Amino acid sequence: MTSPTIDADLRVLPASHPLQAGRTSGSALVSTYQGVRGPVTPVWMMRQAGRSLPEYRALRVGTDMLDACLDPAMASEITLQPVRRHGVDAGIFFSDIVVPIKLAGVDVSIVAGRGPVLPHPVRTADDVRNLPELDESALSPISEAVALTVAALGQTPLIGFAGAPFTLAAYLVEGGPSKDHLAARTMMHSDPDTWQALMRWTATITGAFLRAQIIAGASAAQLFDSWAGALSLADYTAHVAPASALALSRVHGLQYTAPDASTRTVPMVHFGVGTGELLGAMHDVGADVMGVDWRIPLDEASRRLGGTVPLQGNIDPAFLRAPWSVLEAHVLDVLARGKAAPSHVLNLGHGVPPDADPDVLSRVVRFVHDVAGEGHAAAGAAAGGSAPAFAGPVA
């Protein structure tokens, strides 16, 4: 399959794009992201693709994580697995936060049990100056994987994935995962010029990474700032928000014509872990939807955002191993609190744990679709089921 060319000047999505062609523009997910509350709350789960699924573990035998991300057929198949199994309302593109760093030419590997490791941390102005420029032709495996996936998904939308500039910068400076990101925060304050140059670099590559996915067929995108919860509001606003805004500027304004003949843009979700105090600032960088982790209730998150922003979240992953009656009550509480927002996509407040029972995840999706959705059970039965349209595996 030929992958779409990345056009830096493109503003209108290609006619074949699922949004432009009308395959996903009226989907529950896209409509909800645009602030329209439907009869059923759409649901997908962060990290739904991957480690919790036995079919993923079987497919990955003998294949390095980053190699899997850069093999178009494998990345596509992994993205499709949870859509088949769980009947979720969207696929989330299978990748890793450090993939654009790898594609730019930086030495990085993913070590089992630890995560991304960079043998040569970026600590000085010279280190930043020596970072390679991303040749956007290197993104072709990403475009190809997305194109394969959307061809198989049919009317089910695909969500693009990228790490936010601060999270990428934290990995580069720390040389790997960190609990407090002290080295990154030290550079931020002790050498602000070098920090700003590093943030411009990470914003440039992650913006290009997101744009490639959208042009290739993703119907929405989510920017993950996994480590932003380590920052104060003042530090985020002064030293991080401008770079996140720069990254999202690469995808703002990508237009399509909706079924009602209005001109719409591709919706952007912004999510961070432990970022309840940053919600307003994170929204202000150019997000349409805010993801919320499990630490604050959705009604409080909506209040902090002025009651005007669509929300995504926020089942506590710890409840996935609780008795069903406890999990069911928690899901109903999350759905009820989500009504404080203009619209709400149900998700976890963080990723699916590795030891999560896939049958429990499927049961949550069925419950939301068939029980929690007002009037949906009867309508779904009359229509012969409520699972989203899905064209099957990639050939």
Score class of each variant (00 low, 15 high):
184 A>W: 07
84 R>C: 08
69 C>F: 10
282 M>E: 15
339 K>F: 00
219 S>C: 01
108 V>H: 02
152 A>I: 10
253 G>N: 06
362 S>R: 15
1 M>S: 12
222 Q>C: 04
212 A>F: 05
335 L>R: 12
225 D>E: 15
113 G>T: 00
73 A>V: 14
338 G>H: 09
32 T>Q: 04
88 V>I: 13
290 M>Y: 08
277 E>I: 07
22 G>A: 06
216 A>I: 03
45 M>P: 09
97 I>L: 15
28 A>F: 01
321 R>H: 12
149 T>P: 10
174 E>L: 02
277 E>R: 14
100 P>V: 11
343 S>P: 13
11 R>H: 12
142 I>W: 03
303 R>I: 00
309 V>Y: 14
81 Q>E: 06
124 T>V: 07
272 G>Q: 05
155 Q>N: 15
298 L>T: 14
203 A>N: 11
291 G>N: 09
189 H>G: 08
9 D>K: 13
125 A>L: 11
274 G>T: 09
104 A>Q: 01
338 G>F: 01
362 S>E: 14
90 A>T: 03
347 N>V: 10
243 A>R: 05
120 H>Y: 04
93 F>A: 14
154 G>W: 05
359 D>N: 13
247 A>K: 03
56 Y>C: 02
121 P>G: 09
266 V>E: 12
376 H>G: 11
19 L>I: 02
36 V>L: 12
272 G>H: 06
382 A>M: 13
324 W>E: 02
268 M>D: 00
142 I>Y: 00
134 L>E: 00
44 W>H: 07
377 A>F: 15
390 F>L: 09
10 L>K: 10
334 V>S: 10
212 A>L: 01
241 A>F: 08
306 G>D: 13
89 D>F: 01
3 S>W: 08
372 A>K: 06
223 L>K: 02
176 G>W: 03
322 A>V: 03
330 H>T: 11
350 H>K: 07
347 N>A: 08
364 V>K: 10
319 F>A: 14
60 R>D: 02
256 Y>A: 02
60 R>K: 10
286 G>N: 12
234 A>L: 06
381 A>S: 12
275 T>K: 06
318 A>H: 07
331 V>Q: 07
250 R>D: 12
266 V>H: 14
347 N>T: 07
329 A>F: 01
116 P>V: 04
232 S>V: 05
164 A>G: 14
382 A>N: 09
251 V>G: 06
345 V>K: 05
262 S>D: 10
259 P>R: 07
148 L>F: 04
225 D>F: 02
282 M>S: 13
267 P>S: 06
268 M>C: 09
316 D>R: 06
296 I>Q: 11
348 L>F: 01
343 S>A: 15
216 A>S: 12
392 G>P: 11
104 A>E: 02
392 G>T: 06
207 G>K: 06
20 Q>D: 02
7 D>Q: 11
157 P>W: 04
281 A>G: 09
127 D>P: 01
257 T>V: 15
335 L>G: 11
272 G>M: 07
351 G>P: 11
67 D>W: 04
273 V>M: 09
372 A>W: 03
199 M>V: 01
285 V>E: 12
12 V>R: 12
17 H>N: 07
205 I>P: 00
329 A>W: 03
75 A>G: 08
161 F>Y: 08
